[in-house]
Structures are given as C-alpha cells and as structure tokens.
C-alpha cells in the first residue's frame, strides 16, 4: 500500500468514524463530517452538469455540429434561475411548464399502457381446478388481494357493508405485504452496515496492520 493509498483510507475512515460517532451522541466531529458530505455532494452536481450537460449536450453540438438551435433549451435552462429574483420568478415557470408538460405527456401514455393494462391483464387468472391446487390457490390469493387492496384505497364511498368487508380483507393482505417489506427493509439496512464495517475492518484494519 502506497503512502497516498494509506492517506486516502485513513481520511475515509476518519470521516466514517466521525459519522458513526453520532450513535453515541451528537458531537462536533459528526457535524464537521456531515457538512463536508453536504458540500462534496453539492459540488459533485456542478462538475456533473458542467461536463455531461453544458459541454456534452450544449456547447459541443452547437459549435462542433452547428446545431445552433440548442441555444433555446440552454436559455430555457437559464430561465430557471429567475426563481431567485422575486420580481422575475414567474419567468422560470416557462421552463418548468416545458418539463412538466413533457413528463405529463410521457406519463399519460406509459402509466396506462405500461402499467394499468398489463397489470390488469395479469390479474385475470384462470381458476380452472385442472391447473392443480397450488396454482388455483395462488390465483385466488392474487385476485382477492388485488381487488381488496383497490377497495381499501377507494375513499370515494364510506367503507360499509360489502365495501367495508372487502376493505377489511384488504387490510389483512396489506399487513402481510408490509410485513414482507419490513423484513426486506431490515435486510437492506444491515447490508449497508456490513459494507461499511468491511471497509473499517479490512481496508482500514489492513492499513493499521501495515503501519505496525
């Protein structure tokens, strides 16, 4: 391990430990690391947008390929900054409206064509007993689960009578799903901790070993 590698591992370990120190209680080391983190992340955006958007999507195509009309999205992008001047802030709505309209146009089709229709079709499952007990049981669970969940989230009518009963079944299904989500979330958080402990034990630990 070179001196530079040692230095970068020690610096990383110092910041990681500073952040972990919050588990004991709030302290200046934590605050320092937290502020550095916020700053570096914000700085990352500047480099990224400069290289990947301004240079690659605007300047290069405009000057190398003669696509002069890209000056318009560039100007629309700059109009966004009008938000910082109360008197002119309404101008930023033009750029925002362009993006919102564009996203809305894509979503209007893709949400219906790409989610609602295929997911509805996938729920129309056969209950033919010849498919075997397991398949029919699964189909029943899926059909009942989808309908009762949709009913549970239907708030335009009071949950009474059949609607209330179905919503009650819906909440049981939802609890099972949320339980599964919780189990998975526990798994996710622990995995992230394992990653950082590995860094401290093997990378930083290896570096300490080399020193002594």
């Amino acid at each position: 391990m070179t001196l530079v590698e040692q230095l970068q591992i020690w610096l990383g370990a110092f910041l990681v430990l500073s952040l972990f120190s919050f588990l004991y209680k709030d302290n200046p080391f934590y605050k320092f690391a937290e502020h550095i983190f916020a700053g570096l992340s914000a700085g990352y955006y500047i480099g990224l947008i400069w290289q990947n958007v301004i240079i690659q999507q605007l300047i290069d195509p405009m000057f190398d390929q003669g696509r002069w009309w890209l000056v318009f999205p560039g100007l629309l992008g700059l109009l966004m900054f009008a938000r910082f001047f109360p008197k002119w802030s309404w101008i930023s709505r033009i750029s925002l409206a362009f993006i919102m309209g564009n996203t809305a146009g894509v979503f209007l089709i893709s949400q219906l064509h790409g989610i609602v229709l295929p997911q509805t079709v996938a729920t129309m499952l056969s209950l033919d007993p010849r498919n075997g007990f397991g398949t029919v049981l699964l189909a029943l669970i899926v059909v009942c689960g989808v309908i009762s969940t949709l009913v549970y989230f239907y708030f335009s009518k009071e949950h009474k009578g059949i609607l209330g009963g179905t919503a009650k079944v819906g909440i049981w299904f939802i609890m099972i799903s949320f339980g599964a989500h919780f189990g998975y979330t526990v798994m996710a958080r622990i995995s992230l901790l394992i990653g950082q402990v590995r860094f401290l034990m093997f990378d930083w630990g290896g570096s300490i070993k080399q020193l002594f």
Binding site: Q111, L112, Q119, V142, G145, V146, I147, T149, F153
Partner: peptide, 21 residues
C-alpha cells in the same frame, strides 16, 4: 399476497399519475 397488494397499489398509483398528467 405481497404481489397482489403491490399490484393494487401500482394500478391505483398509475391511474392517479395518468389523471394528474
């Protein structure tokens, strides 16, 4: 059960997103 509930939620959310669009 999980796939059914998530399907109910995504269908509802997609309908909401489409109408909002």
């Amino acid at each position: 059960a999980n796939a059914a509930v998530q399907r109910g939620i995504v269908i509802g959310a997609a309908l909401g997103a489409a109408s909002m669009s």
